[in-house]
Design a binder for these strands. Structure first.
Length: 333
DNA sequence: AACTCGGGGGA
DNA sequence: TCCCCAGAGTT
């Protein structure tokens, strides 16, 4: 990992934002590309948000990218380009929560604060056999208190790294390597054959299904796209125009006809074709999309925003649109 | 406290 | 499918 042993708070910060809820393997390439594109916080601050989102495309949780860009500008404008050097001050930065503030403070500035991530929670829950759910205020506080008691004043950075590495490689979520674990004789969960039941999480909310028709409107080498605004998913990314519906009817042609006539001003619309259902599972939603190709020559809607198809790949799109556009050979990647 | 925010990979 | 991932912000 290129950020291991790193002392530059900018690089530590960048790596930690990328690694939030993200596996090292998945984040690695993104880290390299960000460092290459933005060697310093000043470079990142001078970029446009569209550019940052494009580089973040495919990594998910795009508020991380927006907050990353916001905080880079914040650092340059209000901190003279220098990261604050304590846990408490780092915590004030947008996108920097308790874990990330502790990681930066302990790695870069040797402050004795525990960086409690999923790995640390798993290790502690097993060694001490903590049955309390970790995703409640009370439970979470217990893990924080315990981790901070264990953190050595002299080498907090090494300790935090070690705890996470140990959780990621030995004390894994499934099939932990207890046979070679040096804590075997101390681990309450191992003694009681309870490693598989720890840590305890409260039930997650179930994900809901949503259904959309997305319109592929292309003319003279241009295609209609729009930027996503508001509070819904994928804020700031781009997409083909689409319309949400309650569900898909048995008669797809008829439903498309109705939806399209509600969506566009034009009276006579000609459809070329529609696709099978594209599906994407998110944390709390399952997205279903049918893509509809429409003959553009009768479309008179003035609010549609057309961009040259050769420039499509400069915009950040959600995964499900990437898949469609790749199938149409409109983007390569 | 509960909800929301992506996408990938392993079982 | 379900679960988890070097979590954080909003309501």
């Amino acid at each position: 990992m290129p950020w291991k042993g790193e002392k530059d708070p900018y690089r530590i910060w960048l790596s930690e934002i990328i690694l939030q809820q993200t596996r090292v393997q998945q984040g690695l390439g993104y880290y390299e590309r960000f460092i290459s594109a933005y060697p310093s916080v000043h470079d990142l601050a001078q970029a446009s948000e569209d550019e940052v989102l494009k580089l973040w495309q495919g990594l998910g949780y795009y508020s991380r990218a927006r907050n990353l860009h916001f905080t880079a500008k914040d650092i340059v404008q209000n901190y003279e380009g220098k990261f604050p050097q304590s846990y408490a001050k780092l915590l004030k930065l947008k996108g920097v929560g308790k874990y990330t503030a502790a990681a930066i403070a302990s790695f870069a500035f040797d402050e004795a604060v525990a960086a409690v991530d999923g790995n640390v929670i798993r290790v502690l829950s097993r060694i001490y056999q903590i049955q309390e759910p970790f995703d409640t205020a009370d439970g979470r506080k217990q893990f924080d208190v315990l981790a901070n008691e264990l953190t050595p004043k002299n080498w907090p950075g090494i300790f935090n790294q070690a705890m996470m590495d140990f959780g990621a490689t030995v004390c894994t979520p499934k099939k932990p390597l207890c046979e070679l674990c040096p804590f075997q004789k101390d681990c309450e969960a191992f003694k009681n054959n309870a490693t598989n039941d720890l840590p305890v999480r409260k039930n997650r909310v179930q994900s809901k299904s949503r259904f959309f028709f997305a319109f592929h409107i292309e003319k003279n080498g241009s295609i209609a796209i729009e930027q996503r605004k508001g509070k819904d998913i994928w804020q700031g990314l781009y997409q083909l125009p689409w319309q949400e519906v309650k569900g898909f009817d048995g008669n797809m042609e008829k439903q498309i006809d109705e939806v399209a006539h509600g969506y566009f001003q034009s009276e006579d619309l000609n459809f070329y074709s529609f696709t099978e259902v594209f599906k994407q599972q998110l944390s709390h939603q399952k997205i279903h999309v049918v893509f509809v190709e429409i003959d553009a020559k009768n479309i008179t809607d003035t609010q549609l925003n057309f961009i040259a198809t050769r420039n499509l790949s400069t915009f950040a799109f959600p995964k499900i649109f990437i898949l469609y556009l790749q199938g149409k050979k409109l983007i390569l990647e």
